[in-house]
Write a protein that binds this DNA or RNA. Structure first.
Lengths: 223, 223
DNA sequence: AATAGATTGGAACATCGTTCCATAAACAGC
DNA sequence: GCTGTTTATGGAACGATGTTCCAATCTATT
């Protein structure tokens, strides 16, 4: 199975392929990851890649799992549960911010090991926090759904910003805010009113406010 | 602009195209929607469709917006705010359950008018509920992110179930639960323990529990 | 050295979104 | 009613992609 000696110094392997895929995804975005581009970067043929990787979904899942695993491992074991959950959430948020393609992968077809990893980390802390056994499942999945939801929306924004050539975040936000402010006051009074807050809101603060909201709700379940 | 007379009885139009696209998406899934299949169903050529629709993203966005608009309009105006939010959330949940491709569209590139519609509905009710002005933005986006997150995860499950040929929900859930139960107790103690609850949990109850959790958190902000 | 199996690289295939263009139908001015 | 222009149609063609196939090469074992 595992070869004892390397074929050559830069032999192909799933790890090497995933590494190259991540480099392409980060540098040029999701659309740039093709088997041809990958083969060129690895100085091989497209067919050779299929010896190590089932298909493109397998490759994307492995790449996303790689990043999420790194990020979830960074939580200090001795952290207080509430702080640990906030840290995990923020880590995922920032990972998706840095690698928007990971956000899309959370909602793609197969087993989604990355999402499982987050559920495990969050659930363990809820247990430590004293959330009743019966409510742990609902609370953990709620937190994970929220985290993935924000991550997915952020990733969609980042992809849109890249395609429209916008590198300046505040300028990009300003454009959306302008669009919100221009909405029909009859049909969208609320969103229209929120345009100002959107313009200069902090991503991370807003995200953590949501986490705290759910944790506050969970606190009401603890006798 | 708008033609006074029809070209012929079954003239092409964006509405007709979107209607046909929804029919294909619902019947055979997201992968089955191609411009060729669409052209065949409409008895025309692929090129003609581009006269009414910018590209495939435009088509998918219009289709998803169509479904979400229908669903958000079904909320009785006189409903109590908390009940209205729960009803909107449940409507979106069930719409994505019935049309899994809508869930994927929430996280695709451009303007995402469907997500805006939900934000507007939720925000208006939070205002009526008495959530402080300063917290309305964070609370509304948290709720929407949660709703979209669950919807996206559900859609991914539904797609996976379709592809694996599983039509029986409880059998499909059982398979995932088996996989959870077989996880390494060292690495995934929490998820492993939740396998039993996953097996016979109610989608909708779990989803609404999350909504209630966020609403409970929001309640703590009301003086 | 010879054989078998593992691995490679690139050509070939089917399919997709999209563009292009040669028409045809509806309308406008006369 | 004729003519030119705009609006709309349908199908052929283009370029790119994921995937499959296969002949050639490398490694380990006999």
């Amino acid at each position: 199975m595992a070869p004892r000696t390397e074929r050559r110094a830069d032999a192909l392997s799933k790890a090497k392929i995933v590494e190259a895929a991540i480099a392409i995804l980060d540098a040029d975005g999701e659309a740039a990851l093709t088997f041809r581009a990958l083969a060129a970067r690895l100085s091989t043929g497209a067919g050779a890649i299929y010896w190590h990787v089932a298909d493109k979904n397998d490759l994307l899942a492995a790449a996303a799992d790689d990043i999420v695993a790194q990020v979830m491992a960074k939580i200090p074991a001795e952290a207080e549960p509430r702080a640990a959950i906030r840290a995990m959430a923020l880590n995922v948020f920032e990972a998706v911010d840095a690698h928007p393609w990971v956000g899309a992968q959370f909602f793609r077809d197969p087993s989604r090991p990355a999402a499982l990893r987050i559920l495990e980390g969050v659930g363990r802390q809820l247990h430590a926090l004293g959330v009743p056994e019966a409510a742990q499942f609902d609370t953990a999945t709620a937190l994970v759904s929220y985290i993935l939801g924000v991550a997915g929306q952020n990733a969609a924004n980042a992809r849109q910003a890249r395609e429209s050539g916008r590198t300046d975040r505040s300028a990009f936000l300003g454009e959306i805010a302008d669009r919100w402010a221009a909405l029909d006051p009859e049909q969208h009074p609320f969103v229209r009113r929120m345009a100002a807050q959107l313009r200069d809101h902090g991503d991370r603060a807003q995200f953590l406010a949501g986490v705290d909201l759910i944790l506050a709700g969970a606190a009401s379940l603890i006798g």
